[in-house]
Structures are given as C-alpha cells and as structure tokens.
C-alpha cells in the first residue's frame, strides 16, 4: 500500500513523458496500438525513443541490439545496486518477474528505502506502469491537438523528477554533490566536443556515470552504514 502511494508521482511523471513518446511514435508512422504495445513491453524512455528511430529502417536488427545495450546498461548497475537492499525473501522467481520494472525512477524511490521487500517493489511499480501505458495511448491518439508550446514544456517533467531525486541527497552529502557535478560536466564535454559528440548519447550517459561513480568510490569510499541506510 505504501509502495502503491509512492508510485503515484512517478506514474504522473510517466503519463506526461510517455504522452510525448506516443506523439513521436505516431509522427514516425506507427499505429497507436503499436506505440502502446512497445510501451507495455519495454517500459523505458530513452531506449524506446532510440528504438522507434531504428525501427523506421527495415532489417537493422544488430543496430537495434547494440543501441539498446548501450542505452540501457545503466539498468544493470541499478539492478546490482538494488539487489543489495532487498529483503531476504525477495529472491529467485520474484526477482526475475519484478526485474522488469527496474526503471530510473522506480529504482531511485526504492533505493531510498532501508530494505525493499517484494510487496513494496510491486506496489511501487503499479502506478508507473499504468501511467506509462495510458500516457502512450493518449499521446498517440490525441497528441496532435495540443499546441507545441505545451508539448515542449511537458518534456521537462522527467528531468524535474530527476532533480527532485538528486537534490535531497546532494544537499546533505558533499561527495554525492561532487560526483553528480562531475557526471554533468563530463557529459557536457561528450555532448559538445567534436569527435566525442559522435558517440551515441545512450553510451555516453553510461561512460560519464561510471567514471564519476568510480571517482567517488576512490575519493570518498562510503562507510558500511551509509550504504545500507
């Protein structure tokens, strides 16, 4: 029940983000139900966006696989990270089933817990999944009626959510503030320096995040209490 409630803001955020995905998918030439099926089976933002970009060209299966692996590599780190916080009974088949719901935001909210049990994680996943599916449906059906300006503003929702996840921790922990700044600056370097900006953004996110986290782990190794709490 507490998990279900915790998922409401994520679900609302997803509603607006997947709304944008629905609009884009239709503008790429997909049918509304295709957009919805993609969202229901994949449940990821950046990967789906890159995915429909590849799908418009026929037969580039390898390209699809490589782009998805690089964009989604971050989920592996999150899964390993959260695997350290689960309650003793949350294992085996439960992990195989609920691992599907490991998104950036569900992970972020779950990792703020001391211990994550099956019920909490499942509850936490419900509203985001509904939000992601309905948002895609609405976006693909009626995206064309909204003015560009509103759509533009809605695209910021997901980033606002990211800020709200980072800020409270960065405020109390100097090391977190520093590694976050390093990751952001590094990614700007990758985005704007020639040659480096040719690398796909999914891959550069992973590279910058890993480098910054390694730096943090070397300079400020956490005490055991910090990791478990």
């Amino acid at each position: 029940m507490r998990g279900l409630k915790g998922g409401i803001p994520i679900g609302l955020g997803y509603l607006s983000v997947s709304f944008t995905f629905g609009i884009m998918a239709v503008s790429y030439g997909f049918a509304w139900w295709q957009a919805v099926v993609i969202s229901m089976m994949t449940l990821t933002s950046a990967g789906q966006l890159a995915g429909i970009g590849v799908m418009v060209h026929p037969g580039q299966y390898m390209e699809m696989l490589i782009s998805q692996i690089t964009i989604n590599l971050r989920y592996s780190f999150m899964s390993v990270s959260l695997s350290q916080k689960t309650s003793p009974s949350f294992r085996g088949i439960k992990r195989w089933l609920l691992g599907f719901f490991m998104t950036d935001e569900i992970f972020a909210v779950a990792s703020a817990e001391d211990e994550v049990d099956t019920k909490f994680f499942l509850g936490l996943s419900v509203m985001p999944y509904i939000g992601w599916t309905l948002g895609t449906l609405f976006g693909s059906l009626l995206g064309s009626v909204l003015p560009d300006m509103v759509l533009n503003a809605l695209c910021l929702a997901i980033y606002g959510m990211f800020l709200a996840i980072i800020a409270p921790v960065a405020k109390t922990s100097k090391p977190v503030l520093l590694v976050v700044a390093v990751a952001a600056v590094l990614h700007c370097v990758f985005a704007f320096v020639p040659v480096l900006n040719q690398i796909s953004s999914g891959l550069t996110v992973s590279i910058c995040a890993v480098l910054a986290a390694v730096l943090g782990a070397i300079l400020f190794p956490v005490k055991d209490e910090e990791v478990t709490s």
Binding site: S81, P175, A184, L186, V205, A213, A217
Partner: peptide, 25 residues
C-alpha cells in the same frame, strides 16, 4: 559498494545535463 552507492545519482545527472537544456523549444 561505494560505486553502487554513487551510480544512481551520476546516471540521473548525466541523463539530465545537457539533454534537458535541449528538451524544449
């Protein structure tokens, strides 16, 4: 363990900056 503690925040930061600056018109 330290790496895993920092990674979620660095991922979110790298996803936000600079992409968010190009998200609107």
């Amino acid at each position: 363990r330290s790496f895993l503690y920092y990674i979620p925040y660095t991922v979110l930061a790298a996803m936000t900056i600079p992409a968010a600056l190009q998200a609107t018109g």
